[in-house]
Design a protein around this nucleic acid. Structure first.
Length: 471
DNA sequence: TTTTGAGTTGTTCGA
DNA sequence: GTCGAACAACTCAAA
């Protein structure tokens, strides 16, 4: 008698170690590893371009670690499972939970459909340190402010699961499925130069994620608290895309961190995992987080609809150097340093007076770490309409931010080569530079670098007035 | 129920 | 250049 066939359905858990559902599947029987691309399904948000690029490489790495046994299909999961169950001797289906509202609905539907067909299903937590419904106030209400959520909620909850090792013995089931596709056949790479280029900046897959973690712990963690603010330094972990695709679990990071002496640096880095949990909790409690202001007072905010402004921001041609540097980092690498995410976000919303959702959408398409919970919670935060938003008058001044966090201009000059000979004194405000300085730096405003598309002082005051009315 | 203290990431102004 | 205060008022969390 053959052992039962168990499907492990890979979703945002593209790894073998510390994968609770996969481990359980391996204990239960012969495992058929499955990935389903159901991009563009109704109600689901289509994958962004950068995400597709990452997914392509990550699936290749996963397939290789499964000796080429990953079954890849495309379409609606409910229909696909229905067909698979008819063709193959499937006993049960395991997966790790996802928390996007459309995923939750789909999983509920799928569970009952499989049950009707006599197939057992089991879902696990492989993605979060705590389930988003577990962290709540003593009265049962969810937290709305980060600090108590993290300190009282997370840090006093039971400790997160210790990472599981990769299963020692894996019996893989080879299924001959006619519709099976190769990673290449999914068509995730587009031929635009952009898509090819961003992959040069990254290593993908489970092993690369582990390497990144340990490189960060060795080289970046020390002085993380301060150093993470300076985009020219390498003090951020850059683990976000690995985490998003589940090439590494937050538990693996949490416990690797615990091997280090407790300092302000470890504390602050650990709390960033707390922010991830907070975003997921916010999304779970507010399924409309990606599209609707959490604070309804913002529903009447007079956002401008100005495609020219939006385009200038997107392509890094606003004439405000630190903003343009950030936007070009995003376009070139599929990533943006966190300090720059705040600066460019604040600029879009509070200087250009454009709707945060336009920014969210662009980031969604361009970021290799695009994550529904993190992206929407962070945009709502910077826009001031979020759960725990900063006071509205806290508007970043992009000149000061540049002078403070990129004092030597290494970062800005790297992404804006046309300004690379401009002295620090004017690098962040070339419109104030005397003509001879511009000339000797080879900068000609309006020709090889734009004049600023808004007046910083005036647009700030306009935003303040609009925000005051919103109250 | 009432009250009190606090809230990721900042800027400007005036001394 | 450096420092402290002001920028408002509200909501949340917890005693």
């Amino acid at each position: 008698m053959n052992s039962p066939v168990v499907i492990h359905w890979f979703r945002q858990d593209l790894r073998l170690s510390d994968n609770p559902a996969f481990s359980e599947a391996c204990r239960t029987g012969e495992v058929l590893p499955l990935y389903i691309l159901n991009d563009g399904e109704e109600n689901a948000r289509a994958l962004g371009g950068a995400s597709k690029n990452w997914l392509h490489h990550s699936l290749k790495a996963l397939d290789a670690s499964l000796n080429g046994h990953l079954l890849i299909l495309k379409g609606d999961p409910c229909e696909i499972f229905e067909q698979l169950v008819r063709k193959l001797p499937i006993n049960s289906v395991f997966w790790n939970r996802c928390y996007e509202p459309w995923r939750i609905k789909q999983d509920v539907r799928l569970k009952s459909a499989l049950k009707e067909n006599g197939v057992a299903t089991k879902s696990f937590n492989g993605t979060l340190l705590w389930e988003p419904w577990e962290i709540k106030k003593p009265g049962g209400d969810p937290y709305k402010v980060f600090t108590p959520f993290y300190r009282k909620g997370c840090l006093q909850a039971p400790e997160p699961r210790k990472p599981l090792p990769s299963p020692e013995t894996v019996q893989l089931h080879s299924a001959n499925v006619q519709e099976a596709l190769s990673v290449d056949e999914l068509g995730l790479l587009d031929s635009r130069l952009w898509s090819l280029r961003i992959s040069e900046y990254w290593q993908h897959g489970e092993q690369a994620a582990q390497n990144r973690l340990y490189a960060f712990l060795e080289e970046g963690l020390n002085d993380y608290k301060e150093g993470r603010n300076f985009p020219a330094l390498h003090h951020t972990s850059r683990l976000s895309p690995h985490l998003h695709f589940g090439e590494i679990s937050p538990n693996q990071i949490w416990w690797a961190l615990s091997m280090h002496e407790e300092t302000q640096d470890t504390d602050h880095f650990r709390s960033e995992l707390g922010w991830r949990e907070f975003s997921y909790s916010l999304l779970f409690q507010n399924p409309s987080l990606p599209t609707k202001n959490l604070n309804p007072k913002f529903d009447t905010f007079p956002w401008l609809a100005d495609d020219k402004r939006l385009l200038a921001w997107q392509i890094g041609q606003t004439g405000v150097p630190i903003v343009d540097a950030g936007m070009r980092e995003l376009w070139q690498t599929g990533y943006m340093h966190n300090r720059l995410r705040m600066i460019t976000g604040s600029f879009l919303v509070k200087n250009l007076l454009l709707d945060w959702r336009a920014g969210e959408k662009w980031f969604w398409d361009c970021l290799v770490d695009a994550d529904l919970a993190n992206n929407s919670a962070s945009w709502q935060w910077i826009a001031g309409c979020g759960a725990d938003a900063a006071p509205y008058f806290r508007i970043f001044n992009p000149v000061l931010q540049g002078e403070k966090f990129d004092a030597q201009g290494h970062y800005t000059r790297h992404y804006l080569p046309e300004l690379k000979n401009l002295p620090e004194k004017y690098l962040f405000k070339p419109w104030e530079a005397p003509e001879d300085i511009l000339k000797s730096a080879g900068v000609s405003l309006g020709e090889n670098y734009p004049f600023p598309i808004v007046d910083l002082k005036r647009s700030r005051e306009e935003a303040l007035r609009a925000l005051e009315k919103t109250k």
